[in-house]
Simulated assay, not measured.
Amino acid sequence: MKIRFPYFDYLGMPLLGAAAVIFFVVESKRQLRQRTRSKVDRLKENTSVAAVALPALRFLLLPCSYLAAKHATERQFGLLHWARLPKWGKYIAGFLLLDYSNYLWHVLLHKSNLLWRFHNVHHIDMDLDLSTAWRFHVGENIASVPYRSTAVALIGVPAPLVLFYEVIFEGCTAFHHSNMRLPFNLERGLCRFIVTPRMHGIHHSIVAKETNSNYSVIFSWWDRLHKTLQLHVTQDEIVIGVPAYRDPKEQTPLKLFTMPFKKQRAWRLPDGTVPERKEQYPLHRLCP
Rank of each mutant, 00 (worst) to 15 (best):
E210M: 11
R35Q: 10
S131V: 10
A51G: 07
V145G: 01
I155A: 04
G139I: 08
L16A: 04
I168P: 03
V40G: 03
S101Q: 14
Q34P: 02
Y100W: 14
I194G: 01
A69L: 14
T252M: 06
H200G: 01
R285A: 06
R268V: 02
P6I: 00
S65A: 09
R135M: 06
S220F: 04
H119P: 11
R198C: 06
A153Q: 13
P158V: 12
E276V: 08
L11P: 02
S213D: 09
L190K: 02
H119V: 12
R30V: 05
S149N: 06
G241V: 02
E276W: 02
G17M: 15
R148S: 14
N120S: 14
W88V: 15
I218A: 06
F169K: 13
R135W: 02
E279R: 12
H137K: 15
L269D: 07
A53Q: 08
V152T: 09
G94M: 01
L15C: 10
D247S: 05
I194A: 07
H176K: 07
E210W: 12
Y66H: 13
S216R: 11
R285I: 01
G89S: 11
F77T: 00
N141S: 09
R285N: 07
D223T: 06
H226P: 04
A153W: 07
K209P: 01
C64T: 15
Y7V: 12
A266M: 05
H200N: 04
L54E: 15
A72F: 11
A151C: 12
H284Y: 05
L154A: 03
W88C: 00
H119I: 14
F136S: 03
F77E: 02
F136D: 00
C287H: 06
P160F: 02
S48T: 08
Q235K: 13
A18H: 04
V121C: 03
